[in-house]
Amino acid sequence: MRVRQLKDLLAGRLMIAFAIFSSLLVFLIAIALYWRSKPILEAKSLSDLLLGSTWLPFQGEFGFYPFILGTLYVTILAMIFAVPLSILSAIYLAEYAHENLREKVLPLIDLLAGIPPVVYGVFGVLAIVPLVEYIAPVIGKLGIPFLRAESYSTGFSLLAGGIVLAIMVFPIIISISHEVFRAVPSEIRDASLSLGATKWQTIKHAVIRTALPGIAAAIILGFSRAFGETMAVLMVVGNVPSVPKSVFDPAYPMPALIANNYGEMMSIPLYDSALLLAALILMLVILLFTLAARLVLIRIERSMAHG
């Protein structure tokens, strides 16, 4: 009898210890990255690092500006493609689609989520890069801001990165916002419909309005995923460390910077510290975004449970 109780107690304690350990991992990662990026933070001012645009590690120049902008641009571009397509798809799946269709499409979207980044990279190199190379001179002539092609585009560009990333974040935005739409209480729909509103008016004025915070959370989570994605982007974005002026220009996002250079040339002073600072910045930005999005989603979940 005593043995059983003792076992029970010990196992319970052990399980909880595991849980606490795994939740401390976030802090462990942040502390380790901070510890290793401290040398460069002490040697240079933060504003020089973030706003400087010269990247010459051999001469001790570490300006992250082009990389930060590269990351932001490629992510924003991806979101421009992904957000409308994903939200519209999610609305259709949640509100219009027949049970049959939904059960066939959702697994496909899960498949999309399971495809490895390098496979997306290969797809990008084979299909998207040539496409961009082909359309760049045509669209570039029109003289639209951000869509000019000043010089010849090889196709390895912001636009290629944006398109590939967009496909990669479809599943995240769709599956989360689909859940959010499904969580909207049916009373809200019924009330609107009984007042004589059409289905679309109901969705537009009642469902979307109720689901708005959740949609925002889904978008933020998609944004974070795109922001930190490394391999697929690295393979199609060109990796030229200058601020891109057009979507047909190459860019050099921060994850690609880390992947391409970390582990090599560690003998250059401060170089690895600078790269780990890049990792720390990535992590902190994503941490803030994820926290914000999750807090919203937890709220929704709770109101569902109570209401």
């Binding site: 795994s22 939740s23 490394t230 990535l282 999750r294």
Partner: peptide
Amino acid sequence: SLDVLWGTPSIVYGAF
């Protein structure tokens, strides 16, 4: 904190 870990990019895990 697990949710934050879920969102952490794999390059950060690699660096860590």
